[in-house]
Design a protein around this nucleic acid. Structure first.
Lengths: 229, 229
DNA sequence: CTCTGTGAAGTTGTTCACAGCC
DNA sequence: GGCTGTGAACAACTTCACAGAG
């Protein structure tokens, strides 16, 4: 990057579509590593991530030359490379807002914690919840968010409240200094463009499924779609 | 469609990217309708769905000429058109497998029910859960799935179990006759290509957020990204 | 011969700018 | 004047086919 000698290496930007697939490759790699494979091929990764080999190779090549021709990819090295690239090799500190059923499910989700994402506090307005701990995470009143967080660095805020409260909560999280927001509320929230937001919407997924089901043509052979979405 | 006289209308296929946005437009429309707007513009829909006007118009134009030039879209009519198009105007019957925290959150989610998606049964292996009802939905042992469902038509199966059990559960759901699967397990499941699958993966979303945060360039002005993903 | 890496071709999706209708 | 609808230009992404390295 800062090389004085200009390398041939192109300063290509990585396609968003590629980025979206990388977490799934990483998960496939964890599984392959668990099964004891030292070297794996792009076809192996494809198999376990719902992609296909040429796509996997192309995607990985955006990050660098990570494999060995004629051999494949070293599983542990590739995991390491991908983790570094995605920025998940260090722990990420998160807060949850909205300790309802969904929020609780998130606090307890083992697989989130295993991936290096840690909830350090939860916030709610329900007096029955405030003061308790859920899955070892203390629940505070939402009014105390700023003072509770104080100078602690929080990377990500997770919003699991009612749609009416979502925008207000988002602004509070921005004030508290989070850099990214994971939004489970089916409403777009407005935040400064420096704050990254991703939205998960179950109802939208169901509607898309409904559409795909409605359009099943029982007679015609459907083109097999390998990758969803 | 079945017209003897050939119309000029093109038999265009609707882009997947467009389909993915339609549920968000629909949600925006519900909100605008609630606020009493009889007519709305593409910019209004864009505002509430995190898109922008030209995109909204292009997307809607794939479905048909739904608006009126110089005026906008009739809110109720557009809701109706979109619901019909997506196939969500009739109720969809669903079953849940895995009545853990996440499963329970789904069973209780008001907003899923309001959108016409109804859980008719849940399945688990935990004897403490079997026989109970959660949010009015009876929980059965998973071994009883086929006989419980019997001849009832189920549209969608929702998988919220451990990764190890996911594939087995998916095959069971296929046997039970579901047409689509919503998968909350971060593993690709293999089903016949006639069964539609969508996967929701929180850990993957968090990893993508982590990546976006890592790559924040505090100096440079970031291009405002209107639509995530 | 194996399997990665990658330009180039092909496909899909976005954005623009303005024609068309109210 | 307004706002939709849409071809056409542009951009992003996927797929192919094969060069290149072990």
């Amino acid at each position: 990057m800062g090389d004085i000698l200009k390398r041939k290496k192109k300063v290509e930007v990585i396609p968003q579509a590629t980025l979206n697939r990388l977490p799934f490759y990483l998960r496939a790699l964890y599984a392959l590593d668990d099964e004891g494979f030292e070297y794996i091929s792009s076809a192996d990764i494809a198999e376990l991530s719902g992609s296909y080999s040429a796509q996997v190779r192309k995607d990985l090549s955006y990050i660098g030359e990570l494999g060995t021709r004629g051999v494949g990819y070293n599983t542990k090295k590739l995991i390491d490379d991908l983790e570094k690239f995605l920025g998940v090799s260090r722990k990420r500190r998160m807060v949850l807002v909205g300790a309802g059923k969904l929020g609780t499910a998130l606090l307890e989700a083992k697989n989130i914690r295993e991936r290096g994402f840690e909830f350090v506090a939860a916030f709610d307005i329900d007096p029955d919840k405030v003061g308790k701990t859920i899955a070892g995470v203390p629940v505070f009143h939402i009014e105390k968010m700023i003072q509770t967080i104080g100078n602690e660095k929080i990377d990500i805020g997770v919003i699991a409240v009612t749609p009416e409260a979502a925008q207000e909560v988002a602004e509070l999280l921005v004030k508290a200094g989070v850099k990214g927001i994971l939004n489970f509320v089916p409403m777009p929230i407005k935040v400064p463009s420096s704050i990254k937001v991703r939205t998960v919407c179950v109802a939208a997924e169901l509607q898309l499924l409904a559409f795909q089901i409605k359009n099943l043509k029982p007679r015609k052979k459907l083109k097999a779609s390998i990758y969803e979405e």
